[in-house]
Simulated assay, not measured.
Amino acid sequence: MTNIPRNSDNFCYRHPDRQSFILCQRCGRTICTQCQTPAAVGVHCPECVREARGNMPKVRPQVVTRMNSLATSGGPTATYALMGLSVLGFLVSLVPSAQGALLFYGAGALTEPWRMVTGIFVYGGLSSIIQLAFNVYMLWAFGQMIEQQLGRVRYIGLYLLGALGAEVAASLFFPYQPVLISGAAMFGLFGAFYVILRSRGEQAVQILVIIALNVVIGIFFGTPWQNYIGAAAIGALTALIYMRTQHRSQAMQQRLLAGGLAVALLAILLVRSASLVGLAA
């Protein structure tokens, strides 16, 4: 048997006790079977593999690149975000214990303030799937047009203010009843869309018909139609503020008016909740 003379070049550079005659195709260092990574031609050592991976272009998930593309191109990213939150809220509502903890509750606005936020997106479980489909479709049909008209930030502010309007109505008429605000919040967009169309001199009777039909259906089935009116009224008022303060020089005035409306609605909710807690005590 022929003994191969010991040569450091014939041993793995990472494991000096392991003899090998395989070389890395990139750097030429000797590597054992444990350190070899198959490549298109030959094998590579760990350092060369790490360097190659570091030089590879970073590929972002398709969802991220799509959203970035929409954001830079003026796409309706806020509308897509609200649609996603609606679906997420529906999935969360499938957990029975989540509904009781997250639905809006007028009497608990002061002691459980998170309900004012979660109540906007959570649903009533599997039975609300039709409501979810209606909301997602209306967001797609009306939301992206309003977002294009107002911009993302003002559009989201409009949606949240409309939801606050629905919550104020719920706290006034149904203070001790957990209420679904997710459906009523859509009517804030209807009220706003009516004002936007009228400000352009266009006809908007179809919007009033949609609101009236839902109110009639709400009265017939005993659903809290007052919430629809509250959301539509505040949505219309918010859009009116936006339309009357469009000039760049009126930006501060617009922020003050919209912010003042939000503060006023929150104050009504909290004062109403405090009075209900006091009455209960």
Rank of each mutant, 00 (worst) to 15 (best):
L150H: 05
G125L: 10
L172I: 13
I219C: 04
E147S: 05
E167R: 11
F190D: 00
P175R: 12
Q253T: 15
Y155I: 10
L172Q: 10
N227T: 06
T223K: 11
I234H: 11
I234R: 09
M186Y: 02
G201K: 12
L160H: 15
L180F: 13
I207N: 01
I229F: 03
Y123C: 05
Q206R: 06
L150E: 11
L158W: 10
T223F: 14
Y242L: 13
A166Q: 08
L161I: 15
L158G: 09
F190S: 00
I211L: 05
N227S: 01
V179N: 09
Y137C: 04
N135L: 12
R152A: 06
S171T: 15
R244N: 11
Y194C: 08
L197E: 14
L180G: 06
H247E: 04
E147R: 01
G201M: 12
I196P: 03
E147V: 03
E112L: 12
M138H: 05
M116Q: 05
L208A: 11
A258P: 02
A258M: 15
M243R: 07
Y159V: 13
Q149R: 14
Q148H: 12
I234L: 15
Y159P: 01
E202Y: 13
R200V: 11
G230Q: 07
Y228G: 00
I229H: 01
V122H: 09
F221A: 04
V136Y: 00
V168C: 15
T238D: 15
V153L: 12
T118A: 11
R152C: 03
Y159S: 10
N135C: 07
M243Y: 04
L132K: 01
V195E: 06
L256G: 13
L132E: 04
N227D: 00
M116E: 04
H247D: 04
N227F: 00
Y137H: 03
L161E: 15
W140H: 08
Y176G: 15
A232D: 03
Q203N: 14
I207T: 03
V215Q: 02
L213E: 08
R198Q: 10
G235W: 08
A170T: 10
Q177W: 11
G151P: 04
Y228W: 00
N227W: 01
P224F: 10
Y242A: 11
R244W: 07
Y176C: 12
A133K: 00
A169L: 09
V136S: 01
I234T: 14
L237C: 14
W225G: 02
Q144G: 01
V122Y: 09
I129N: 00
W140A: 05
L189E: 02
T245R: 08
A233E: 11
G119M: 03
V195A: 06
Y176I: 14
W225M: 02
M186Q: 06
G183N: 12
V153E: 08
Q148C: 07
A239H: 10
I129H: 00
M116W: 02
P113W: 01
H247K: 10
F173K: 04
R255C: 10
L160G: 13
A185F: 01
Q203V: 06
I210F: 13
Q246I: 03
